[in-house]
Deep mutational scan, measured.
Amino acid sequence: NITAAIYDEIQQEMKRAKVSQALFAKVAANKSQGWLCELLRWKENPSPENRTLWENLCTIRRFLNLPQHERDVIY
């Protein structure tokens, strides 16, 4: 289940792992930094009809659900 909290989790994970938006986007969703920036802007007004947005957030959720040491190896 995806909630608005995922946006904060993304920010916290980037700080914790000391990774850039570009690197996080690449490893978590195989996307660009610009894409992640755009995604983070949706926090203010996520559209329930935007299926692509929710699919991408689900992809990021799966990455964030990995154990921390696995995420660190991927970075």
Rank of each mutant, 00 (worst) to 15 (best):
A17Q: 09
L66Y: 11
E9P: 00
R51W: 07
V19N: 06
E49G: 09
V73M: 09
P46R: 02
Q21Y: 01
Y75W: 07
W54L: 10
A29T: 03
A22V: 05
R41K: 13
L53A: 04
K31D: 12
D72H: 05
F63H: 12
C37F: 05
Y7I: 10
R41I: 10
A22C: 03
L40S: 04
Q33H: 15
R61L: 13
L39Q: 07
E13V: 00
Q11S: 04
E13T: 02
N30L: 09
K18P: 15
A29F: 06
N45A: 03
E55F: 15
D72L: 05
P67Y: 07
N56M: 14
L36H: 00
T52A: 08
D8P: 06
R61H: 14
I10C: 05
Q21C: 06
A17K: 14
K26N: 11
Y75P: 01
F63E: 00
A25R: 00
K15S: 07
R71A: 03
N1R: 01
K15T: 12
Q21S: 13
N50V: 07
S47R: 15
E70C: 01
N65H: 06
P48C: 05
F24E: 00
N30V: 07
S32Y: 04
T52I: 05
E9Q: 14
E44F: 15
E70R: 11
A5Y: 15
F63T: 02
E44T: 07
L23G: 07
W42G: 14
R61C: 10
E13S: 00
A22P: 15
E49C: 03
L64Y: 00
S20E: 08
I74M: 03
E44L: 04
V27P: 00
A5W: 14
A17R: 09
V19R: 05
A28N: 03
V27W: 11
L39W: 05
L36V: 14
Y7Q: 03
N45K: 11
R61E: 14
P67M: 04
I10F: 02
I6N: 01
L23K: 09
A25E: 15
L36P: 00
A4P: 14
N1K: 02
A17F: 07
H69Y: 02
Q12W: 09
V19S: 13
W35V: 09
L40P: 01
K18H: 09
P48I: 14
L40R: 03
M14N: 02
R62Y: 03
R16S: 14
Y7N: 09
C37G: 09
W35Q: 07
D8L: 12
E13L: 00
A5H: 14
Q68F: 12
E44P: 10
K43S: 05
R16D: 07
E38P: 06
T52E: 06
E70V: 00
L53P: 06
R62T: 04
I6K: 00
I2R: 05
N30G: 10
A28G: 11
T52F: 15
W35G: 14
K15P: 05
N30W: 08
L40N: 01
L53V: 14
N65K: 13
I10Q: 02
A5V: 15
I60E: 00
I74V: 09
L66V: 06
R16Q: 11
E13Q: 03
D72M: 11
R61F: 05
R62Q: 14
A29Y: 10
C37D: 13
F24Y: 02
L66H: 02
I6M: 05
A25L: 02
E38Q: 05
E38L: 04
E70H: 03
I6D: 02
V27A: 11
V73A: 15
R62W: 03
A17M: 11
I2K: 13
L23H: 05
A17T: 05
R16T: 12
N1G: 01
K43D: 02
P67R: 06
W42C: 04
K26Q: 10
